[in-house]
Design a binder for these strands. Sequence first.
DNA 1: CGTGCGTTTGAGTGAATTCAACGGCTGTGG
DNA 2: CCACAGCCGTTGAATTCACTCAAACGCACG
Lengths: 228, 228
Amino acid sequence: MLIRSTHPTDRAKILSLHHLPPINSQQSTEAVQLKGASMSFRRNAEIYGEGEPADYLYKIVSGTARTYKVLSDGRRQIGGFYLPGDILGLEIAEEHSFSAEAISGCKVLVIKRSVLVRLLAGRQDEITKELWGLIGAELRRVQTRNLLLIKSAQERVVAFLLDMAERVSTGNSVELPMSRQDIADYLGLTIETVSRTLTRLEKLAAIEISSSRRIVLRNRGALSRLNS
Amino acid sequence: MLIRSTHPTDRAKILSLHHLPPINSQQSTEAVQLKGASMSFRRNAEIYGEGEPADYLYKIVSGTARTYKVLSDGRRQIGGFYLPGDILGLEIAEEHSFSAEAISGCKVLVIKRSVLVRLLAGRQDEITKELWGLIGAELRRVQTRNLLLIKSAQERVVAFLLDMAERVSTGNSVELPMSRQDIADYLGLTIETVSRTLTRLEKLAAIEISSSRRIVLRNRGALSRLNS
DNA sequence: CGTGCGTTTGAGTGAATTCAACGGCTGTGG
DNA sequence: CCACAGCCGTTGAATTCACTCAAACGCACG
C-alpha cells in the first residue's frame, strides 16, 4: 500500500494564493500580507503548539517540519512530515490540534488565516476551490495513513519509503530528513522495529542503505509487492 | 484515549442546511432539492461505491451505515460508522474514496452536492461555515482514529465503546448496531481479539455483556483509566 | 582521543494472530 | 414440533510478530 500524500509540486501549484492578482486596494494590502513574513526556525524549534489559536498558515520554503501530539502516557505520535512546498497548520478548528516543530533548520512563509478567509469571501470560486483542494489533500493524507496503521510493520515501512520517494524523488535515492525515532513515531512502531525492517529490506535486495539517512530504492517492483 | 467523533446532536445542528430560508426564487427550488429525496436501503445494500462520482451527500435518518475499503489482499478496513443524524459521503474529491453500505435497514436523506456548492457561492458566510464545520469534524474524526490505531487492542476497544456510548448514549447501556467483524475491521483487529477483549473487560467488572449486541458500561472511570 | 548521540543488533518476553473447535440463536423444512 | 443447517460469537492452543531490555557499533564533535 502506498501513502498517497499530495505531491509537493501539486501543492505548490495549489497554494500559489499569494500570487493572485489583488482585487482592490483594500485587498491589495492583504495580498501583501498574504505573501507573508518569511521566518526561520532552527532544528527542533517549535513552529506552533497544540491548543494555540490557528491564526496562521505556514508554507515550508526550505527544510522539513513535523506535526505531533504527545499522548497522556508519554508516547509521541507524529501527524505528518512537511517538505518544501507543503502547507502546515491547515486546521479548520480555531485551535491547532497538533504541535509543529522544525526537524532541520526551516524557512517558512507565514500567511495569516483571517486574510485568506476574507479573500475567500470576495473571490469565491477560485480561492475556495484552492482551499478545498488543500483540505481535501489533507483529509486524503490522513485517511491513507489510517489504512497504513492496520498493516504490518514491513508494509508500513515500505509505504513510508515509497511515499518519501514520491515526495523528494531524486531518482531512486531518498534522503530522509528525519530520525529513526521520528519515523517510528510516525508509523506507530518502535525505533528498533524500523531499523530491523530496513536491514531486512536491504537483505532482500529491495533497498540499499547508503547511510542511515540515505536510502536507495533498488527494486521498486519488489517493494510494491511487499506492500501487499 | 477517546474517539472524539462529533456528537450526533451537534451534527444535526450543523447540517440543518435544508432548513435555511431560501435566498431567491432560483435558489428556492434548490432548497427544495436540498431537502432531498428520502431513500431506503436494506441490510448490506450498497449506498455508494468507491470511485463513483461524489455527487450526493447522505444524511442518515434511521439505521446505521458503514464506509469501507477492501485492500488488495482482501482485508477490509472500515472507515467509520454512521448513526442517525450523521452525514455520509462528505468527500472533497470528485470521487468517493470509500464505499458505503447499510448495516441495518436505513432511511437516508439524499442531498445533491452541486446544490450545496452553488448555495455556497451565494450565501458565503453562513453556509461555508457550516460546511467547514462538517469537514472539520470529519478531519478530526479521522485524526483521532489515527491516534487510536497506534494503541493496544484493549485501548482500541475501550475507546470504541466510549465513543459509541457518547453517540447512542441511552444511559450506560450501549446497543451496538454492527457485528464483531465490523468492529474488528474498524479497529484494525481480528474478530477473536475483539471478543476476547470484551470478555476480559467484563471480568474486570468494567462492562457487562447483556447480549452480544448490548453492552452496559459498569464503570466508566475504570474504562477511561484503561484508556491510558 | 574520548564523549555523546543516533543507529544497529541480539536475546527474551508478551500481545495479538492463526487455526481449530465449540456453543447459541434463528430460520427452514420435514 | 423437532431436527438440522448456517451464521455469529466465544473460547482454547500454538505460533508469530513486534516490543522491551540490553549491549555494541559508528560517526560527529569537542
